[in-house]
């Protein structure tokens, strides 16, 4: 098991390096630089700034300098906020963003899996069509539409929940979590339904019924484990996406998370900030995909015995 993990972690390093290299080159190719403003600064100032951030070195030197700092855990200074480091900005945003992501993930898995199972129990009946149409709507509605709708209904008309903020009032975390998790819940519902339908048609389900087990036991004990495989595969990248924050949802609900920095960094040509957020996101993807793989193998005794060593 350890060996398998080690191998996978080692394999992730070239992936991350490639991501860094591509991002590094792409942002240099993009027109404009970090110190371009509407009001042009004097050439001397720009030159000084370039010197200060080593932007006058050849690109490959800059790249290796950056890598060198990176392995020491230093993401470099932000170009936009001269007094703060990228590490500091990201680590300030993470707790809030991660909390939001975690709740959204719970929403996604909870609602998604339950409604998927319900739909799979009676395929092609109302019990199937209703949750599945809802999930189709969930996939089609982007967060910037769903968020305001939820705010209107629950925040303004019904007045049940606060319309914005994070941790200032009771229950103000509910709407953002729902908004962020909805689309993922919808995907998970469809994946669960598919996985469950596949498993429910297996011979061993018939065996379980023939034993005299009640239906809920057949589903919980025999079908769910195999039926969730596609969900888990999707949950890896989904978790990475949720935990790294969303610009849209954080803006709608005025949450001081990390989401805003992705966009701002790109607009400002804040090179180090772009790299920092990208690396953060890529690492999350790598980590959660690995977790999903481990979980899949652990759930399946056949894989547990054979795949791990290869």
């Amino acid at each position: 098991m350890l060996k398998f993990l080690l191998k996978r972690i080692l394999a992730a390093i070239p992936v991350l390096l490639l991501v860094i290299l591509i991002t590094f080159l792409l942002i240099r190719i993009a027109p404009g630089g970090p110190f371009d403003r509407e009001r042009q600064a004097s050439p001397e100032v720009i030159e000084n700034l370039n010197k200060r951030y080593n932007l006058d070195d050849p690109v490959y030197v800059q790249f290796f300098n950056y890598l060198g700092n990176l392995v020491q855990g230093d993401f470099g200074p932000s170009f936009k906020y001269p007094n703060r480091s990228v590490t500091e900005i990201i680590s300030n945003g993470i707790p809030i963003t991660a909390e939001l992501g975690l709740y959204a993930l719970m929403v996604a898995i909870g609602i998604g899996v339950v409604s998927g199972v319900i739909a799979a129990l009676r395929p092609n009946t109302a019990q199937d069509y209703i949750p599945m149409s809802m999930s189709m709507i969930g996939i089609c509605l982007p967060a910037f539409v769903l968020g305001p709708i939820l705010v209107l209904i629950f925040g303004i008309y019904l007045g049940w929940l606060p319309v914005s903020g994070w941790g200032y009032q009771a229950y103000d975390k509910v709407l953002p979590s729902l908004t962020l998790g909805a689309a993922y819940a919808a995907y998970m519902a469809r994946l669960t339904r598919g996985g469950m339908l596949e498993v429910l048609s297996q011979d061993y389900i018939r065996t379980a019924i023939a034993k005299g087990l009640p239906k809920w036991k057949v589903v919980l004990h025999h079908a769910l484990r195999g039926g969730l495989a596609p969900v888990i595969t999707f949950a890896g990248p989904a978790a990475a996406g949720l935990l790294s924050g969303s610009f849209v949802v954080e803006s709608i609900f005025q949450i001081p998370g990390m989401g805003q920095f992705y966009l701002q960094a790109a607009f400002n040509r804040d090179y180090t900030m772009i790299l920092g957020t990208t690396i953060f996101f890529a690492s999350l993807i790598v980590i959660f995909n690995l977790l999903a793989d481990v979980l899949l193998v652990w759930l399946n005794p056949r894989l547990r015995h054979s795949t791990l060593k290869n």
């Binding site: 011979d203 061993y204 025999h222």
Partner: peptide
């Protein structure tokens, strides 16, 4: 009951 295919009739998990 017992079934035809013992490979698939038992829960592999």
């Amino acid at each position: 009951m017992i079934f035809q295919d013992p490979m698939t009739s038992l829960n592999p998990y």
